[in-house]
Simulated scan of single mutants.
Amino acid sequence: MTVRRLGLLLLLLLLLLPALAHAQNTPDEYLRLFDANGDGRVSEAEYVAHLSEGFQRLDRNRDGVLETDELPGGHGKPITLKQYQDNLRRQFHKLDRNHDGYLDARELTQPPQG
């Protein structure tokens, strides 16, 4: 794993922490945080939109780039919203183990495969 990919993964995990803290006890309750249209599954667009909220909270100057001073701990290389969302899309497809284009509660709460 390259240093860049490791950094993106770390950033993703740091941005996921608020969502995880608000999640209730069950995978179904966690799924509902992402499921904007209430159909019981999470599309790529819903996944990216929900997790992009963390990026937007950190982007204090609203320029679409998380600069080093905006990153948790003040460390790391700047990352654009597009780069972050591209990484989220890759993660979505790793989580979508049955390749149906959606995440169910089980897929959403399991760690992505290599």
Results as ranks from 00 to 15, higher is better:
M1E: 12
T2Y: 00
R4A: 15
R4Y: 12
G7W: 14
L9R: 15
L10H: 15
L11I: 03
L12F: 14
L12A: 12
L13K: 02
L13S: 09
L16M: 14
L16I: 09
L16V: 07
L17T: 15
P18C: 06
P18E: 07
A19S: 14
A21I: 06
H22G: 12
H22F: 04
H22T: 08
A23W: 05
Q24K: 03
Q24W: 00
Q24M: 00
N25S: 00
N25P: 00
P27Q: 04
D28T: 10
D28R: 05
D28A: 11
D28Q: 10
Y30I: 09
R32E: 08
L33S: 09
A36C: 02
G38E: 01
G38H: 00
D39W: 02
D39G: 13
G40F: 06
G40C: 09
R41A: 13
S43G: 07
S43H: 06
E44W: 01
A45I: 03
V48S: 14
A49E: 06
A49P: 00
H50N: 01
L51E: 08
L51S: 06
S52F: 05
E53Q: 14
G54V: 07
F55I: 13
Q56W: 00
L58Y: 12
R60G: 12
N61E: 09
N61V: 03
G64H: 10
V65H: 14
D69S: 09
D69E: 04
D69I: 00
E70R: 10
L71Y: 07
L71D: 04
L71N: 05
G73P: 02
G74A: 07
K77N: 14
K77S: 14
I79K: 11
T80D: 13
T80F: 11
T80G: 13
Q83G: 15
D86K: 08
D86N: 11
L88C: 03
R89E: 08
F92S: 08
H93P: 03
H93N: 11
H93I: 00
K94H: 06
K94T: 01
L95G: 09
L95I: 05
D96K: 07
D96Y: 01
R97S: 11
R97E: 10
N98R: 12
H99N: 09
D100E: 04
G101M: 02
G101I: 04
Y102M: 12
L103F: 12
D104T: 07
R106W: 10
R106V: 15
E107A: 07
E107G: 05
L108I: 03
T109L: 01
T109D: 02
Q110A: 11
Q110T: 13
P111D: 04
P111Y: 04
P112R: 11
Q113A: 10
